[in-house]
Design a protein around this nucleic acid. Structure first.
Lengths: 190, 190
DNA sequence: GAAATTAGTAGACGCGTGTTTACAGGTCAA
DNA sequence: TTGACCTGTAAACACGCGTCTACTAATTTC
């Protein structure tokens, strides 16, 4: 039997990241993490403190949107549309959104999730916008991103056929444009 | 002490409806329902079977979107925008969406939630649409509706200021139009 | 090689959950 | 008034949860 503190710690963290993304905070038990990591339960508490702190470390470790936002404001809608479409049609999705949307209802980690949505999605998105109402526009886009996460969680990949991917990307691009771009109608209707 | 079977049953159902909408399935305990309904715990199981069945009855009892969809296809985006904006800025929201978005992560009621999203939101929405890709368009709108529910749950009414309501409604109307209306661009860009 | 340090383990602790059982007490027909 | 029936109640059940403690055993230090 190997005895490697760092390796065990890493195995636990990897298992926790996988399970939290797949099942959400509440559904993941300490015993499940221990089994998945092939480690003893007591070691989780020894190395990470409590379940909540382990979850916080998982959140802190996984970065922002993985490269999705590395594009100028003009190309942003298309980029987001492709990202969301892939998550909605393919087998796997980003653990960032999955972890958030599957754990949003747990009051114990409410603040963690809230801050995470801000720092990983809403604020970086808002930072890429120009013009008025940036917070509002970024907020609607964030709602759409998280909503597709919930939809994916409920229906799997059955909501849209894979053959509809082009239509889906086109439609989502238009929707994200409606969210993010500056409206050019100087005459406001009364 | 009054002994009224029907009244007790109704009190339990009312309490359950309120609590499920406010806290979500997992966070609501049988003892909490009993206390809120001022009834004994054992009576819940006697009258409704199990917690899952009580939740199913709550879902079955609360109707579809309350009047939100009673409008023609042209007026639908505006109507949905106002509905979502009100839920995002005012104190209270529709229990239909709240119950769904707060309970979506519980595997025990996964099928119930899935069917509920279909029968209460997605399918009636799709039925109001004409043209191609009705399922896809209604799906995106459903994602947006549920996503705003999650956003509301995380941030309360702090996401947008109440004074921004007009801008919010305008922006959301544009977004729902991008979701729902038929695109009139016969020339597809390559 | 002996002693100290540290990783790993087994098991129990207290608590809260949904559910059930045995019983008390009000209600109503005969 | 008596007795059957039904509503309501208290307590316990079995289980799973996160957490903690006492212990074993491998590794390191001298």
């Amino acid at each position: 039997m190997r005895r490697d503190r760092e390796d065990t710690r890493r195995r636990i963290l990897d298992a926790a990241r996988r399970l939290f993304a797949e099942l959400g905070y509440e559904q993941v038990t300490m015993r499940l993490i221990a089994a998945e990591a092939d480690a003893n339960i007591a070691l989780i508490n020894r190395y990470f403190g409590a379940k909540r702190e382990l979850f916080a470390e998982v959140l802190a470790q996984q970065g922002r949107f993985p490269g999705v936002l590395d594009v100028d404001e003009e190309g942003l809608p298309r980029r987001l549309a492709e990202y969301v479409a892939d998550r909605l049609t393919s087998g796997t999705g980003s653990p960032v959104v999955a972890t958030i949307s599957r754990s949003a209802a747990s009051p114990e980690i409410h603040e963690l999730i809230r801050d995470r949505v801000l720092s990983a999605i809403l604020e970086p998105l808002e930072a890429r916008l120009t013009g008025p109402d940036t917070r509002l526009r970024a907020g609607i886009a964030t709602a759409l991103i998280m909503g597709t996460g919930t939809l994916r969680q409920l229906f799997g990949t059955d909501v849209v056929r894979a053959q509809d991917r082009d239509a889906l990307v086109a439609r989502l691009t238009a929707v994200f444009e409606a969210c993010l771009t500056v409206v050019d109608r100087p005459s406001s209707p009364t």
